[in-house]
């Protein structure tokens, strides 16, 4: 029996043209999403398989390749987080994978996360203490606020990146890329945490 293998190169760049060049865009993070959408529609009309349903097999294959590249590019670029993760990937910054890999606990959160996990376990074990619910609700609000702060920091780092690209300063680019990668990791971790708390609270609410 062959061995199972999981994906081992999550940071690898996808093949073919990069998504920014599909739309003739520079590798910058600020983006006019309405203009992107219009460009997506325009290009879809030109290459979509529906336009080649009766064409030769070669043309159909070409259309399929072009359209899947276009769709993949649009899907990635229209979402600011996916856009940033993708940019870091093609820039060779290893962190900021596809969002599936569990991130490390950010050191400054270690104590709080430990506390929170204990409370979550208690709640899941069926501890009906109303104080526990109140505490968890408070923790949820707290983490949601911190998530918003991280998003703010990320937005600033994205601006820095764009400025560095315009100025052509390689060092500044590297610094902001590293910062974005770290922030994305932190963000992913906190989002998972918030989701877990929400689910735990929601699940026990349903039973009550």
């Amino acid at each position: 029996m062959p061995e199972f293998a999981s994906a081992v190169f999550p940071g690898a760049a996808p093949p073919g043209a990069d998504y920014f060049s599909v739309f003739n865009l520079p590798r910058k993070l600020a983006l006019d999403t309405r203009a992107l959408e219009q460009a997506f529609y325009r290009q879809s009309r030109a290459v979509h398989p529906d336009r080649f349903a009766q064409a030769s097999a070669e043309r159909q294959q070409w259309s399929l390749e072009q359209t899947s590249l276009l769709n993949d590019a649009y899907r990635t670029l229209r979402d600011p987080i996916a856009r940033t993760e993708y940019l870091l990937r093609i820039e060779g910054v290893t962190a900021g994978g596809r969002g599936e890999t569990p991130a490390q606990v950010p050191p400054e959160l270690l104590a709080e996360v430990f506390e929170l996990n204990m409370q979550l376990d208690e709640l899941r074990a069926g501890d009906g203490d109303p104080q526990l619910r109140t505490d968890l609700e408070a923790a949820r609000v707290e983490f949601e606020q911190r998530l918003a702060l991280v998003d703010g920091e990320l937005a600033r780092a994205q601006d820095e990146w764009d400025q560095a690209v315009e100025a052509g300063t390689g060092a500044a680019r590297g610094a902001s890329a590293a910062r974005m990668a770290a922030l994305l990791d932190k963000r992913r971790y906190m989002r998972n945490l918030v989701r877990e708390v929400r689910e735990a609270l929601g699940a026990t609410l349903g039973e009550a």
Binding site: A5, S6, A7, V8, F9, A12, P49, S68, N71
Partner: peptide, 12 residues
């Protein structure tokens, strides 16, 4: 995801 859609994975 809008189709056609594709993704590439690497295995070892």
């Amino acid at each position: 995801s809008t189709i056609p859609a594709s993704e590439t994975e690497h295995f070892t």
